[in-house]
Design a binder for these strands. Structure first.
Lengths: 260, 260
DNA sequence: ATAAATATTGCATGAATATGCGGTTTTAGT
DNA sequence: ACTAAAACCGCATATTCATGCAATATTTAT
């Protein structure tokens, strides 16, 4: 696959600004230094953007960044507020591991949605998913090519499972598999709560060169019904910084662990 | 996808420009230098193209290239709020026309999302769609069976187009086709803004027994680039209560018209 | 078929835009 | 009040853009 070029596409000020507005409206606030890093430009450019946007009345700036003008009473569209900070950190850490031009096979979960939001806007990637919410979030990324795998949608996971989807994934070869909705049990087995979903995840792992697992701390040691794969298939586990007995055992298996 | 790259035969400016427009609508942005290389012409020619297209109001240019106009770029979430009351009424009226157990082929638009929300929670239906936002909305319905048709997602319409999606639809037979994003021009032709999307709609209509068209008043008489089908294929047109010369002519064709 | 008219293209020049950097002023937190 | 970070200012630089112009290709008229 094409994962060699690290040359970033540079965005125009207009594009940057419209992305910044979306980010502000989505997350409530942005930090200049972070944006500078994400866009790969100096903080001066970001400040100019912020000043323009502020003068246009689209954002309100504060020392170090900018925020939404009025906080419209916590969007009901967004129920990802529980443990959002933790998931955001994990997502950001995982996003940093993705190289230019990579093909990602993306699982369904709120954590991977944070992951998608943290992907640098200048990074061009191909995102393949069976989950509608993931696809919708991926379309907000300015440079991503988004491919949705169809089928009957499960009500719980809101993604396509079943024979058609499995077949479609089996025919693919991706660089990275990004897993979100799984736990790791005491036998060091990755598990999921839904039978079809578990089988789907296993297929996704097989179709990818590397597998990244994004799991908040409470997911480690948690019991779930259906087996996906041994945790040793995971290349890197991104998780939050809580001491956990399982964590060490996972590391001993040769899995990279990144704490956020 | 239409990405003819002719290295040897040189294209006329018109051909180049129409390819550029499609590229812009598909990917969101184009870069002058890249286009020059792809078409095998100087950047000056590309700049002239871009200037023409920008003056024609088809693209928005920025330093170094051009991007899609901001109107569609401001996303579904925001478009959902403009004229919401009107759309809600139309959606509710159309929802009342759906019988128990029907299979619906649903187009991509904010109006049909209101339609889905207005479906009685006790009504069990099967909803088939290529649009991620429609699928997401349909999943909120307690009894709906939702089937998503996959493929590469277009940035403009946020739905799957292309050969795979067309084939999948062609293999179906639905009771109702619910159309949203179209206008009706003065020649009583249903039209859409995107080439692939227009073809997709036409296929959806053919795969359905009846076609319901949901169009706010300003869509009637509006010009759009690509032809979908004559309005006579529509069984019922749901629209808002504004006097409109076209409305009478549509009724004369035998199309049921329901005003909200 | 030939010639004239028109369009398109590429290049050169000067103007405009975007960006990053150093230095200074302002702000926020201790 | 003091300090470190952030914002502002002006400037240097590198692309990118517009325009005029000459050469070439294409269309139209005779």
């Amino acid at each position: 696959m094409t994962t060699e070029k690290q040359e970033f596409a540079s965005l125009s000020p207009e594009e940057r600004q419209s992305i910044i507005v979306e980010k502000v409206n989505a997350t409530g606030r942005v930090v200049a230094a972070t944006l500078a890093q994400e866009f790969g430009v100096s903080e001066d450019s970001i400040r100019r953007d912020l000043r323009d946007l502020s003068e246009a009345g689209l954002v309100q700036r504060f020392h170090g960044g900018a925020s939404r003008l009025v906080t419209p009473a916590l969007d009901f569209h967004r129920r990802e507020t529980v443990g959002a900070g933790e998931k955001q950190l994990i997502g950001r850490a995982a996003a940093a591991a993705i190289p230019e031009g990579a093909t990602l096979l993306v699982d369904s979960s709120t954590t991977v949605i944070h992951f998608l939001r943290s992907l640098p806007p200048t990074l061009s990637v191909r995102i393949i998913t069976t989950a509608v919410d993931v696809a919708a979030a991926a379309l907000d990324h300015p440079l991503a090519e988004v491919i949705m795998i169809g089928g009957r949608l499960g009500r719980l996971t809101r993604n396509a499972t079943g024979a058609g989807a499995i077949e479609a994934i089996r025919a693919l070869k991706a660089d990275y598999c990004i897993l979100g909705t799984c736990g790791v049990d005491n036998n060091l087995m990755v598990r999921a709560d839904d039978f079809d979903d578990a089988y789907l995840k296993a297929t996704m792992i097989k179709a990818s060169n590397k597998t990244l697992l994004l799991a908040t701390a409470e997911k480690l040691g948690q019991i779930a019904t259906y087996e996906v794969a041994p945790v040793s298939v995971v290349s890197t586990l991104f998780t939050s910084n809580h001491d956990n007995a399982i964590l060490k055992r996972i590391e001993e298996l040769g899995v990279d662990v990144e704490l956020s």
